[in-house]
């Protein structure tokens, strides 16, 4: 057993912090895209558009049923061989695409369950005043489902932030990639990966604080 090289670790912190924006960028873009896609998928699963339903079921099944890493490799290394326009795709884009589709599949199920959890009377009230189905979903049902789904969705977001580390396998130099490079220069693997682990941890903890605020905000209408 040897002592940790603290100076090396401290020196590494600013280097890795420099890649935090890229990690957050990938996670944020993927989260927004995944939320939109998941909402569409979830609404479809609830209202069951004939002819579309099986496609959505297949989509969710595939992206939940296969590892994220495999999906990323499929997009980045595999698809460009088959579809020529995708040869231009860079690692960051491929990672965002993969994270979006993968997590949309999970989040769709969470949102679908939340939609079903919205009281039936809310649907009927919306229908009774002559709202179209789209208006009812957008203005009444989804906002209430968001409150029910929020804790689960934040969990997926956390998972997604950590999932961005897989982008390093697509040659993207993000937090994990940068750490790997540093470590292979210094051979201080334990120190390097410990630093990056702690930085991920802190990011997630900061976000968990935001979760409480988000839940208070979404629950505001329901406070007595």
């Amino acid at each position: 057993m040897r002592a940790l090289d603290l100076d090396y670790m401290l020196g590494l912190v600013p280097v890795i912090l420099g890649y935090v924006p890229l990690t957050l960028f990938m996670a944020a873009v993927a989260m927004v895209c995944a939320l939109i896609l998941a909402s569409l998928l979830a609404v479809e699963r609830v209202v069951r558009v004939p002819g579309l339903d099986w496609l959505v079921i297949l989509f969710i099944s595939f992206f939940r049923g296969t590892p994220l890493l495999v999906q990323l490799f499929l997009f980045y290394y595999g698809l460009p061989q088959v579809v020529s326009v995708l040869t231009q795709i860079n690692g960051v884009t491929a990672a965002i695409m993969g994270l979006t589709l993968h997590f949309a599949a999970y989040m769709a199920e969470a949102i679908r369950a939340a939609i079903t959890g919205v009281d039936r009377s809310q649907w009927e009230a919306a229908q009774s005043i002559g709202m179209t189905q789209g208006q009812m979903m957008r203005r009444i049902v989804l906002p209430q489902a968001a409150r029910i789904a929020a804790p689960t969705l934040v969990n997926y977001f956390i998972d997604m932030i950590k999932g961005t580390s897989l982008a390093f396998t697509l040659g993207v130099t993000e937090m994990m990639g940068a750490t790997q490079k540093e470590a292979s220069g210094s051979f201080l693997y334990f120190e390097a990966f410990l630093v990056v682990a702690v930085i991920y941890w802190i990011i997630v903890e900061v976000l968990s604080q935001g979760q409480k605020q988000l839940e208070t905000r979404l629950g505001r209408a329901f406070a007595r």
Binding site: S121, Q122, E124, A125, S128, I140, Q144, F222
Partner: peptide, 13 residues
């Protein structure tokens, strides 16, 4: 038409 429900059914949000 407009409808008044037994359980009020106000939009909770």
């Amino acid at each position: 038409t407009s409808f008044v429900f037994q359980n009020y059914a106000l939009f909770a949000n």
